[in-house]
Design a protein around this nucleic acid. Structure first.
Lengths: 111, 111
DNA sequence: CTCCTTGCTACACTTTCTGTAGCATCAACA
DNA sequence: TGTTGATGCTACAGAAAGTGTAGCAAGGAG
């Protein structure tokens, strides 16, 4: 791929970051790697996406230095990736509160 | 649209949330609404996406009770949406550190 | 009646993603 | 040696999602 970061020509890192994180499967991949490294197929099965796109996203994440491949153990978060993950951990708790509040409106059917 | 939340049939709110936030433009829209309400076109211009998709994402966000339309002022974050935004605010600072560290690898050219 | 703003839709075109098959490399094992 | 399995990854056709431009309907102001 290797295209300009979408939707942001402003030179602002936050825009580039939001763009990266807004690509399909990116947040999910980071989430799946939160505890231990995973192999390519393991990751693919965990999130249920095609190998094509898993590979593309891993490339994005590796270029962004958030994920790296360790031959011995598999794909894992870099120190930078772990920092990012820490910022996201509160989402886990909050998501349950959110699900409760949104529960009544039909979104629940799809969870 | 109104389709099943992508990539997650596990019944876990975090998966539904990651799926929602992982849709293109969603994070960006929340970000653009962080300070004051915006009108449809205003929002569209700010993020540079087509009205089709802006409308679709606003529908997603409204269904998720993160964004609402106030006739007098425009689209704005709900209290729930503001809570979510608070969790994301640290990203702003972190993104600059990230940009510095990633800067050397070619990503900088696209910021 | 005309003009402007509002949210939003239509539609053809392009890009992205999916689903399945399969390649190349390496190590283990018979 | 030769087969089997795991590894990361690629090919490719079809389906889905996003883009860009035009325009509609409703409401308010003049």
């Amino acid at each position: 791929m290797a295209k300009p970061v979408r939707g942001s020509k402003t030179g602002r890192p936050i825009m580039a970051l939001l763009d990266l994180l807004g690509r399909r499967w990116v947040l999910r991949i980071v989430w799946e790697l939160r505890e231990e490294p995973k192999r390519f197929r393991e990751l693919q099965d965990a999130i249920g996406a095609s190998p094509t796109i898993v590979n593309a996203r891993l490339a994005d994440l590796r270029e962004a230095k958030l994920v790296e491949l360790d031959d011995a153990t598999g794909y894992r978060l870099t120190p930078l990736g772990q920092e990012l993950l820490k910022l996201f951990l509160p989402l886990h708790v909050w998501s349950e509160k959110w699900a409760r509040k949104v529960g009544g409106s039909g979104l629940q059917d799809r969870l």
